[in-house]
Write a protein that binds this DNA or RNA. Sequence first.
DNA 1: TGTTAGCACTCAAGGAAAGCGAGTGCTAAA
DNA 2: TTTAGCACTCGCTTTCCTTGAGTGCTAACA
Lengths: 350, 350
Amino acid sequence: MELTERKKQILKIVVESYIDTAEPLGSKAIAEKMPGKISSATIRNELADLGEMGYLEQPHTSAGRIPSAKGYRLYVNELMERRPLSEEEQAAINDSLRGELRQTEQVVARAGQMAQSLVNYPTYAAADHRSAVTVKRYELLPVDEASFIAVVMLSDSRVKSQLMAVDLPVEPSALPAMSHLLNTHFTAIPAREMNGKLMGLSDQVVPEWFLLLNRVVEYAGELLQDDSHTQVFTSGASRIMSFPEFRDIDKAQGLMHFMVDNKEKLPVPTTDAPMQILIGPENVSDALKESSVVMASYDIGDNMRGLIGVVGPTRMDYATVAARLSYFAESLTRMFGKRELPAKEEEGNP
Amino acid sequence: MELTERKKQILKIVVESYIDTAEPLGSKAIAEKMPGKISSATIRNELADLGEMGYLEQPHTSAGRIPSAKGYRLYVNELMERRPLSEEEQAAINDSLRGELRQTEQVVARAGQMAQSLVNYPTYAAADHRSAVTVKRYELLPVDEASFIAVVMLSDSRVKSQLMAVDLPVEPSALPAMSHLLNTHFTAIPAREMNGKLMGLSDQVVPEWFLLLNRVVEYAGELLQDDSHTQVFTSGASRIMSFPEFRDIDKAQGLMHFMVDNKEKLPVPTTDAPMQILIGPENVSDALKESSVVMASYDIGDNMRGLIGVVGPTRMDYATVAARLSYFAESLTRMFGKRELPAKEEEGNP
DNA sequence: TGTTAGCACTCAAGGAAAGCGAGTGCTAAA
DNA sequence: TTTAGCACTCGCTTTCCTTGAGTGCTAACA
């Protein structure tokens, strides 16, 4: 059976109406929305075909049609109008970006919140490293005879530090030497190689030193480790409950539990495309089988990539969400391009 | 009218049954649970009195009685048996505390999660400073001619650091001098005084220095500021939906929205008591008027105090929650007492 | 005076029956 | 290929009824 132009048009009407109202659409209503005069009976024939081809479904015999996941997919791939944002919409986004966004740590969460208010669906946000992070430099600063500060500079320009307590007094003059040791042996290598290297040193340095080195290396390891499962932030998760498909408390709970207490398992893009859409059963997690996710990523500088995901019912307003989200992500990328390092004005990039 | 011993006993039975089943309890059922033989008619008389005094309510004329907020309050204050934890329960808590809890930053969130699994109600967690945090020490480390690292040690022993870009090259030798300047003028003072001090220096140092000093002081100010509205973590928020009183999706959404997207407004203790209970309408926030909150705090060292809150329906199991939570909080305090600074081993431990 | 048995009354909850109406599939004619 | 017509399906809503748990009140009892 062939997917004629008219069938596509009908599908588009059904999808968009369902996105709008969450109600099945009948042949008569479709006939009225079609250009030219076509009787509802004709539409019914077409609907039967579309159903047979798997693009439409019927909740029950005497109800209208609703799109299937396959139907949504076709809509997203072919039928959806990728309208650019209006001036006002762009202005709104640009406004929300003005000021704000300083501390790299908070950028990701804040971006998620902004996206949330932009699309009116729950969102989540995270950061991702394109390449593995390593330690670039160590620095040990004396505090008193009972403690010192370990400063660790990472390859993505983040700098982390922690106060370390010492059990046995170490003369302060030893710290620079130990820094040197760390900088020559424990930089630019992945976390998993650190322990091996450390063992190699165990009989070359005095035990007191070794203990401290161990502690600093362990701290660095934690920092690198920590990065793999970076924090995920959600915004407006409870909004999911205002959609009629989640009026059922058990469904709502399932999804809320996933978004709030299992954030880490929310999907991440599997392709390099600037935007990816997962429709209903295309999702891996069971909790998302009845939801759709739109994901976009942006460059955050320092070889890092930010991720924003939008979660909604399968009948989510793909066209609007996709348009706003991609513009937003582009704006963020543009913005971070300008100020590669926080507070650094533009000039040549390293 | 007097609150006789028998009335109290009846109230206790009603509260505990309602906590257990979420169903109103009738006179006959109460009569059966009372020691000695008393007819349901007598109970009915007592119930009428208790209702008049405001301790009990009736959902509708032909239903049994349920406790009012006032009834719960009396129960919590006088009637509840403050049973200590059993050996097994204590062991379970101790087990969950073993290992874990290193990085001061993550302690709070982790503690909240642990509490969650302990009480089976949603929890939230935050940290609080007993006294204002100030900067204890600054350190500026050279990186290259385009940037340096600012390390800021805070009075609560946290150490924060960030990479700073410089616009105009500053000879590296200037950094120690600037550190000194910072350490003499910008330590141990509250954030709001910093700007004034900085202005005072504006004509005493060369403009390039001033710019950098400004940036470091600004960074420090952010750190201190940041502290006032510390992050709040929630665990198991979606669990609230499994309670019958929140089967209603709108109620559930109201509370979820509050717990997930308005965490910052969750209540904090108003007294110094080790545990505080807020019952239903005693809560300030509208969203919590139909819920109860049990809060406990623990010492985290460094003049900081951790807070754990448990959120549930008004009929939450106060006795169990209070017992577990207070034991847990005490255990945490004990634990942090032992290892004041992270990573300091206790003597004699493997 | 407090307690109890008895009784009429109330009211939410659950189920069956009936009517409504949106929407369908099929047939036969244009 | 399109259309009009028509019988049929089936979820929803409303109405009505029944059931049963629980009450308040009264009058008798210890």
